[in-house]
Write a protein that binds this DNA or RNA. Structure first.
Lengths: 321, 321
DNA sequence: ATCACTTACGAGCTGCGTAAGAATT
DNA sequence: AATTCTTACGCAGCTCGTAAGTGAT
């Protein structure tokens, strides 16, 4: 059994049993993979994939177990490689991050810019997605790090490091009826006008929506959008008041009026989720420190190295640009 | 990085940094291992072993981490091999058991004999040792299975399966003053005569010794021995009453008188200890079933596959030849 | 007819063991 | 002097890619 044979098995499984596709992904030829597959199946003594004629149809029961173990093997091999790269102060590498839109668009760029100073040659693979999607990618070991936000609660995942707190903000055109006053707005006042919110805001488990529901108020959601940029565009078209993460308001948005909303919507926390069974490259730690400057290296280490009970939510600060 | 390179690293580390010895154990030549070592160190970018002149002196800090991960990799590879061997109903294989003397001498042979019927070609590697030694060997992944006895309590180890209960028995020559009566013996009566016990009986944490101590009685331990055979020999020389595990009394010992001792000494339980991170060959399950006939395959499975809280001590029976 | 896997073949690389060399103890 | 690791060399085996073959849709 060789590592390449195991890599072949996983590549084929991950390419939906298409050997040619798997070969292309591994920068190899298709006959090479066919041979590797034949050899490992010979050694195992049974087929990993069920053949339908000349193509592969499905994974055998025993094959599935082998694949799971093969993932563990290659994961540990990657751990050794990460370990070694850290030790020799390697600055090259890949950083695979899955994150929600607001974080990827408004928070990560600055942090990654600072990261570039020390790790110039890191290839970033940024994958946008919803919170659950990001955690799924982590589960499938396709990313190193998931960045997700919650309305306070600890997200799933075996290593969850809180990074910073943030609130939602309302944005309106300067001419909007609510834009002038200085007094804090009530839910009732807000609900009198059309609102523009994120797609996720309509989900039942979202506490923001619950804030309205519990107050017995039916908000008037004029439209929803997938990203904060779109929301701001709609606000500029005078379609309503926008509800966005405060990080989404940049100096370029000075044409809009920002209305505080921390008192009506629940506070949010952004978390970094990692796998406890993977050794992280140093630049992952560096990125985490960029994102959570109030945490000490030691606190981050303790969480990442599996201290489950440790609650650092009281140690993190509010987000600052 | 190849599996052979990792195997080389571990072999050298396990051979106390003697490359020649490691090569012999791997059935390879010494230059081959030197080359493998040079190559992996080149790839890692740092030395795994500190050189003192031309020989290896110690393991570097980073090297130690690599070695630990390499063990994980090769352990998972062994898992795949076990998985495959089970699936193709392979009857050959190796069974590495560490066990205390009484179990290895009086209990295992019969069970292994029955095992031979289904798995004729299994190579047995039996390593005798004290209870702690056996657990250490398991910790170091040098055995598949440790068989140890306790005075009731669950031993250390992440998978501990209770197998059967047993009691100690007293053996005496037919002419001995205590050998005639039918009434159960008291500790006081026993302590009036020289005793022959196992080495372990003198250890402070042994409840058997505590039974005497708590009764305020100082037993007269005439001599101690490492194994039950020796104890019986001493009994035959009329040096005293022997205290042995009941399993150690065979039909061949009919020249000796057996005196029940269950009422004065604590009852014992024999456990199988396994690693939760290793896939076991089918014959390991088979051996466990031989040793614990009252447990169902499903109960054994549940304990082995990591159900930590499950307490099967109420499900096991008293030992029967 | 096209797509996908298999088989055949020749080239290049890798890894081994033998043998000789060098540095410690 | 003995031990142990390193270097050099030549051979064997492995794995690759190209190209042709085969079966299925």
């Amino acid at each position: 059994m060789t590592l390449n044979q195991l890599r072949t098995l996983l590549a084929i499984a991950d390419a939906e049993l298409n050997i040619s596709l798997a070969a292309a992904r591994l920068n190899a030829t298709q006959p090479a993979l066919s041979r590797q597959l034949r050899q490992i199946e010979e050694e195992l003594g049974f087929q990993v994939f069920v053949r339908h004629g000349k193509s592969l149809a499905q994974i055998t029961r025993a094959g599935g177990e082998v694949l799971a173990r093969a993932r563990a093997v290659l994961g540990e091999v990657r751990n050794i490689e990460a370990l070694a790269a850290n030790h020799r102060r390697e600055t090259r590498g890949t950083l695979r991050v899955a994150t929600t839109q607001a974080l990827g668009r408004f928070v990560l760029p600055a942090a990654l810019g600072r990261l570039r100073a020390r790790f110039g040659a890191v290839q970033l693979r940024l994958r946008p997605g919803g919170g659950e999607e990001c955690l799924d990618l982590l589960e499938r070991d396709e990313i190193d790090l998931a960045l997700v936000s919650t309305e306070g609660e600890r997200p799933a995942g075996d290593v969850a490091l809180p990074l910073f707190r943030w609130n939602r903000a309302l944005v309106a055109l300067p001419g909007h009826p609510l834009a002038g006053g200085n007094a804090p707005l009530s839910l009732t006042q807000i609900a009198q006008y059309p609102l523009i919110a994120a797609d996720t805001a309509t989900q039942a488990d979202f506490k923001m929506g619950r804030a309205f529901r519990e107050a017995g108020i039916e908000p008037n959601i004029a439209c929803t959008a997938r990203d904060a940029d779109t929301i701001k565009t709609f606000v500029r078209l005078d379609l309503g008041i926008g509800i966005v993460a405060e990080m989404a308001l940049t100096p370029e948005d000075e044409d809009l009026v920002r209305l505080p909303a921390a008192h009506v919507f629940p506070g949010c926390i952004t978390w970094a989720i990692l796998r406890s069974d993977r050794i992280q490259r140093d630049y992952v730690f560096e990125l985490l420190r960029e994102l959570a400057p109030t945490l000490s290296r030691e606190e981050i280490d303790r969480v990442i190295h599996g201290e489950r009970g440790l609650d650092l939510t009281s140690r993190i600060a509010h987000w600052a640009a």
